[in-house]
């Protein structure tokens, strides 16, 4: 077996490696080079400029603004989305009525395309015909917030859409973990007279570390990206209040023809995602409980 193993390793890995290297690694490697150049994204070749782009970034208010919006997402999306998902998962796995209906319904937004969600929610937030504004006006609030049109509310409106779309997905991830927790543990807790709250915190949550870890990785990727939903709903506005690194670099590349600078922003983005992912793996590794 040992001597022959490369007879299977090589042909089994080859198709994946070839396709992946050609269509994924190679374009990204090119992009890595572009980060150290000035390039208008037209026919003239990129011009190598060393660390110029990164120096420029340090003094670029728009970059820091976009990064801080990403940070807001990074802090609040995990708390709100995962917290809510965990809460719902716990409730549904307690054999409530219609639990199947809830499980199926809550997950559905995850399968919709971002374009469709963006269109739908732009109308939900519409200042005159939108659902929220109409409801608030109906209960007597004359000046409801202009959700996507006001820098104070736009970012949080997008947070809400993201929670709407992904809470079901994370709920299902948590539910899977909950179902694999041995019933005997709950029974023991019940014998001890534990209530719902203490059961959750003493038994359920500690046994969900693996699910939490995966969820954290996924939500980190979502919080760093946010491109699709931002682009269809606000294009980073109003007044850059919903700008994130992804939309900023898109703007630099495709609006201002600065592909070099845009790519250097993407490098920073990439590094942040990698570091956070490794950090999550490290922090949660030892906490996994075997049973």
């Amino acid at each position: 077996m040992r001597r022959h193993k490369y007879r299977i390793i090589i042909p089994f890995l080859a198709p994946a490696l070839i396709l992946y290297s050609l269509f994924v690694i190679y374009p990204y490697a090119q992009a890595m080079y572009v980060a150290f150049t000035k390039w208008k994204g037209l026919r003239k070749s990129p011009r190598f400029v060393g660390l110029d782009n990164f120096e420029k970034m340090l003094g670029d208010d728009q970059f820091w603004n976009a990064l801080s919006n990403n940070l807001i997402y990074l802090v609040f999306l995990p708390i709100i989305t995962l917290g809510f998902a965990l809460f719902m998962a716990f409730m549904i796995s307690q054999k409530v009525r219609f639990s199947n209906f809830y499980r199926v319904t809550f997950f559905f937004p995850q399968v919709m395309s971002v374009v469709a969600i963006g269109i739908l929610w732009s109308f939900v937030y519409h200042p005159t015909i939108g659902i929220f504004s109409s409801l608030l006006k109906a209960v007597g609030i004359e000046r409801p917030p202009i959700w996507l049109g006001d820098p104070d509310t736009a970012l949080w409106s997008i947070v809400a859409v993201t929670v709407w779309q992904s809470a079901g997905f994370f709920m299902v991830i948590f539910m899977a973990g909950m179902l694999s927790i041995p019933k005997s543990l709950y029974e023991a807790a019940a014998l001890d007279g534990a209530g719902r709250g203490s059961t959750f915190f003493r038994i359920t949550f500690p046994l969900l570390w693996e699910n939490t870890r995966s969820s954290l990785v996924f939500i980190t990727v979502i919080a760093m990206d946010m491109f699709g939903i931002t682009f269809t709903m606000t294009q980073g506005g109003p007044d850059r209040s919903t700008d994130v690194l992804a939309t900023l670099l898109y703007e630099h590349a495709f609006l201002h023809s600065r592909f070099g600078y845009a790519t250097s922003i993407a490098m920073v983005y990439f590094v942040i995602v990698i570091v956070l992912t490794l950090l999550i793996f490290r922090v949660t590794r030892r906490e996994t409980i075997e049973f």
Binding site: Y125, H126, P127, T128, S133, R143, I146, W147, L148, G149, D150, P238
Partner: peptide, 8 residues
């Protein structure tokens, strides 16, 4: 300016 204008 009409209420809601910035969101349209």
């Amino acid at each position: 300016i009409m209420e809601g204008t910035p969101g349209l």
